[in-house]
């Protein structure tokens, strides 16, 4: 009690009020450091874009191929001057689509379970498992596709139908690979749905399932769409799985049980150290990379757009 009394009496003894600006060097240093980090990431991105454009320009400038051929040709075989990206693009689309067909329902189911159903204990077990799943190197997934998924598909559909290297197997494993991504992003979106909406539904006599599927999921739909788009860009960009299990020859086919080669798979095979640095084959992989970059860039723009809309939904 006495001390409080003293302090209340103290103001008279306080030193004169000083509102002058003070130098705080550590603040400045930290600020500069953080700024530099931001700048570096921007420059790295710009650098990558620059290299992609530069090398692609060389490719298109070689006179051996023009953009129309590049976009519409149906054969990709650089060694004989065939540069039609369609077979690579189609294969990328098919594997990604299969991947999404696997990842979307499963990822969403996991997200709904985690966000709406799981007890804290179940969450405590399941979330780390998902994180482990997300942390497995993709090359392991690649061998998983080759040595487990492909034999499984062959035993289901027959070895005559399913080729040893095929898009289905790679696609399914890509799906498994991105489940954690879809699940965690969707779970964030679901958890962000206000509790009051759930209570409103329960208050009307809705079951848990009705509440989850008819109220929470629709309310989180924009966030889930964003997760799906990020998942698609991940699937499109996935490399090791397709390099190991989908095949090593570009082929224009819609049959998921046939082998083909995706854009990323082709890049990794060709850049495996076998090409002369200034050959057109070598430059061609940059044009593929640029094409990929444009795709993922567009997907990112779309996802940003969707996420922005998502914020407007329930307030």
């Amino acid at each position: 009690m006495q001390t409080t009394l003293k302090t209340t009496a103290a103001p008279i003894d306080l030193p004169q009020l000083d509102l002058h600006k003070r130098r705080r060097p550590h603040e400045i240093i930290i600020q500069a450091f953080l700024f530099a980090c931001g700048i570096i990431s921007i420059f790295v991105t710009l650098g990558i874009v620059f290299v992609l454009f530069q090398e692609s320009l060389r490719f298109f400038g070689s006179g051996e191929v023009n953009l129309i051929e590049f976009l519409t040709g149906t054969t990709w075989q650089p060694a004989i001057g065939e540069f039609g990206i369609l077979p690579l693009f189609l294969s990328t689309i098919i594997t990604s689509l299969i991947g999404m067909l696997v990842a979307l329902p499963l990822g969403l189911a996991v997200a709904i379970y985690l966000s709406e159903y799981a007890s804290p204990r179940a969450r405590g077990i399941l979330k780390p498992i998902l994180e482990v799943l997300a942390g497995i190197p993709t090359v392991v997934y690649g061998y998983f596709a080759l040595t487990f998924m492909t034999p499984l598909l062959r035993s289901l559909f027959g070895a005559d139908t399913v080729q040893i290297y095929n898009m289905a197997s790679g696609g399914i494993v890509i799906g498994i690979l991105i489940i954690p991504l879809i699940a965690s992003m969707s779970e964030d979106a679901l958890s962000a749905v206000p509790r009051s909406l759930r209570e409103g539904a329960y208050g009307l006599g809705a079951t848990k399932l009705e509440t989850s599927l008819k109220i929470v999921v629709p309310a989180a739909l924009s966030g889930i769409s964003a997760a799906v788009i990020v998942g698609i860009s991940r699937a499109v960009g996935e490399t090791m799985v397709v390099a190991l299990s989908v095949g090593a020859g570009p082929k224009l086919t819609f049959n998921p049980f046939e082998s083909a080669e995706t854009m990323t798979g082709h890049i990794v095979r060709i850049s495996g150290g076998d090409l002369s640095y200034d050959s057109i084959d070598y430059n061609s992989i940059f044009s593929i990379a640029l094409f990929l970059f444009v795709i993922t860039f567009l997907l990112n723009l779309i996802s940003r757009f969707v996420v922005q809309r998502f914020r407007e939904v329930y307030d």
């Binding site: 009051s196 909406l197 209570e199 409103g200 329960y202 208050g203 009307l204 006599g205 109220i215 629709p218």
Partner: peptide, 17 residues
């Protein structure tokens, strides 16, 4: 079933989106 017979209105208006 209980909640179907005994409905509830909440503190903050919470219409569905």
């Amino acid at each position: 079933e209980v909640r179907r017979k005994i409905g509830m209105v909440f503190q903050k208006p919470n219409p569905f989106p």
